[in-house]
């Protein structure tokens, strides 16, 4: 099993709120890997909208994304993109 961790500063203008959070969860759910998002001492299941919202990740916050599973690498790349883009496009 691959396990990858990556520290990222959120550049998305809304932070991980509202639509970006929904997008993050939608994308996370496309992968088999387990995904955990950590902010300080708090952590949440990356596939849970409520978990992500409860982390209250504002713009400029540093988070740690962990992915564990066969497709962990791809998952990290895809999720990182959402967090780094200022205005990510919604996937339908």
């Amino acid at each position: 099993m691959r396990k990858i961790k990556k520290k990222i500063v959120v550049r998305n203008k809304q932070g991980l709120h509202a639509r970006p959070a929904a997008l993050f969860v939608q994308v996370a759910n496309k992968f088999d890997a387990n995904i955990v998002v950590r902010k300080g001492t708090l952590s949440a299941n990356g596939k849970s909208i409520m978990g992500i919202l409860m982390l209250e990740v504002g713009p400029g916050t540093e988070i740690l994304i962990e992915a564990e599973g066969e497709d962990a690498g791809e998952a990290i790349v895809a999720l990182e993109k959402i967090v780094l883009e200022e205005e990510p496009e919604l996937i339908r």
Binding site: A22, V25, K47, S48, I49, M50, G51
Partner: peptide, 15 residues
């Protein structure tokens, strides 16, 4: 209602 569906399918909540 997409927001409602997201809540309904939420992994953390269901687990």
């Amino acid at each position: 209602f997409n927001a409602h569906l997201l809540v309904l399918e939420d992994k953390m909540f269901l687990e």
